[in-house]
Design a binder for these strands. Structure first.
Lengths: 220, 220
DNA sequence: GCAAAAGTGTTATTAGTACACCCATGC
DNA sequence: GCATGGGTGTACTAATAACACTTTTGC
């Protein structure tokens, strides 16, 4: 018998943390999907925060921390018997990340079951959107990389060709790049300069609660 | 005894939906905070989605739906005995929204306890950010409003003065406004034209899973 | 010397910023 | 007729988009 003050019991809706993983292999974006179509996930341990759960999930895959982990959205599925609440995360890995589970090119991942599909679709939407105004792409790159490689990563995430000169100028003026002394020679052509991520975020490096929400600026 | 496959029991972490409510009273942004410093909230009913829980929470306050409800972020608090997971929402109301609980100017709300403070701070950060690239502000306005009123709402959320001519041009070119035939006469001066929200979102009207994430555009 | 990818500048358009005066009304 | 807020335009600057050739290398 449930009154408006005693709505129960929330315990009956399981909570799960689900992680959309991405890696750039130099040619395509890859992800982790299990043979049954599910994503890496776990219920939170009772005494760990959701962020820690997400970190634990990816650490279980590669015994390395992801380069970047961010909460995406919390989905609640109530339409079937298997009710659950899924807190979704996005995790980005450098190309070196290898583990027990195989990476699959995102394009070759067939239609997923409804719930993982919701998470993956939203993850790709956010990844694409964040490319434009944050330094998120650098977490998919190796320590040192050429501008051509960086542009390829952008292009395959955005699904569009970018102008080489505009791209390079944009990167150069963003402050996100540091030139290294090294070059990469490979093939019968001019060697490419290697860059690394400066660690400085793009101007509008966005606002997650972790990054900024503790500031108390008043609204009048 | 918990192995890596049997992490239990998630049921021990209560789930709650917490809503940061905002209204623009013509002079200041107002919010709802209970005397004990908490925000309107409820655990989800077992068979309702989180979005519905949020809607139910605000409907309980005003017996009207909020003009706008959006999920913000899911916080997990594990540092004390009162562990809980809080799915936070932002809800915007038109000035007419009145109910059993009193609106309080946001500026007069003293320091809140840690958990509601986290939610409120992030809500104000997101509200401010979304002003710039979405049509979110219109959900705080009455059906018809003058450009001066709209600008005042923007200014008090942003905490900054805006240039009248630039503001008006920006609004006019955004396609978000519709001119009405009516004017407002009040006081010894030229009457002001009344506008209403066209329903068309600003160009980059952002991507929540509800609005768009079901689209399946591939990443190569 | 040629194939292959690296690297580089200019012009045109658009969006944003700064800034000051006339207009319609009530009293 | 004057006080009050409503309404308007222009010039400058910064960001974005379009576009084609030269450079360095390996073979």
């Amino acid at each position: 018998m449930s009154t408006s003050n005693h709505r129960q019991d929330p315990a009956s809706i399981p909570l799960r943390v689900s992680v959309a993983c991405f890696r750039w292999n130099g040619e395509a974006i890859e992800t982790i999907v299990y043979p049954d179509g599910t994503l890496p996930s776990s219920p939170p341990d009772p005494c760990e925060s959701l962020d820690v759960t997400a970190q634990r999930v990816v650490k279980g895959l590669f015994d390395t921390h992801a380069a970047y982990v961010e909460q995406l959205y919390t989905f609640s599925y109530v339409s079937t018997e298997a009710r659950e609440t899924v807190v979704s995360y996005i995790a980005l890995f450098p190309p070196e990340a290898e583990g027990s589970v195989a990476w699959k090119p995102l394009a070759t991942v067939g239609p997923l079951p409804e719930r993982p599909a919701t998470v993956m679709n939203y993850a790709t939407v956010r990844l694409r959107a964040k490319l434009e105004y944050t330094a998120i792409a650098f977490h998919l790159m190796p320590r040192a990389f050429t501008l051509a490689e960086l542009q390829l990563a952008y292009e395959s995430i955005l699904g569009a060709q970018l102008d080489k000169r505009n791209f390079r100028r944009r990167m150069a003026t963003s402050g996100m790049l540091e030139e290294t002394a090294d070059m990469r020679r490979e093939g019968p052509h001019r060697p490419a300069r290697l860059y690394r991520y400066s660690g400085r975020a793009d101007r509008s490096s966005y606002l997650t609660p972790s990054s900024d929400a503790t500031s108390q600026e008043s609204i009048s």
